[in-house]
């Protein structure tokens, strides 16, 4: 009975708690990071294979759209890291702490830590975009 429909119904429709959302977010952020990573490795290697093209790539990177993507990427990486650390720690060192209270709390903490790391970074990156691309703040 497993099908894409069942899966999506469950992912979106099931009223899971913190663990459910952490799972979904972990998966989405992970896929986001790996997609970017694949592109990033290839484009960075242009530095060696075709340095003149690399300048073009940098220009793409500097675009507003890409900049916003990058802000999202930073969130993905932070959340995926914090939440992954949480899961790895519980699985490997503290299976006894897979209790309802602790799991709900740890998932929330993971999200908050990720946000705390991300918001100042995002602010600074946004500032850079506004400064360089829109000439604000004297740029």
């Amino acid at each position: 009975m497993s099908s894409i429909k069942t899966t999506l119904t469950g992912y979106v429709g099931y009223r899971g708690r913190e663990g459910h959302w952490a799972f979904l977010l972990h998966r989405i952020t992970g896929l986001g990071v790996v997609l970017f990573l694949a592109i990033h490795i290839v484009d960075t290697s242009f530095v060696y294979f075709a340095p003149h093209l690399y300048e073009e790539i940098l220009n793409v990177y500097r675009s507003t759209l890409f900049g916003l993507g990058e802000i999202a990427l930073v969130f993905c990486l932070f959340f995926h890291g914090v939440n992954g650390l949480r899961i790895a720690y519980l699985d490997m060192f503290a299976p006894k702490d897979w209790t309802i209270d602790k799991t709900r709390r740890s998932a929330m903490i993971a999200l908050i830590v990720a946000l705390v790391m991300w918001i100042p970074s995002a602010g600074y990156m946004a500032y850079n975009i506004l400064y360089h691309n829109f000439g604000l703040f004297g740029g």
């Binding site: 530095v47 990177y61 900049g67 932070f78 970074s121």
Partner: peptide
Amino acid sequence: AWGHIILQDVVVGVHNITTDYAI
């Protein structure tokens, strides 16, 4: 990964990255 992204995307920022810098 965090070190890399914080340094390149936040602290330095793509606007300050040049080919020479990268090389």
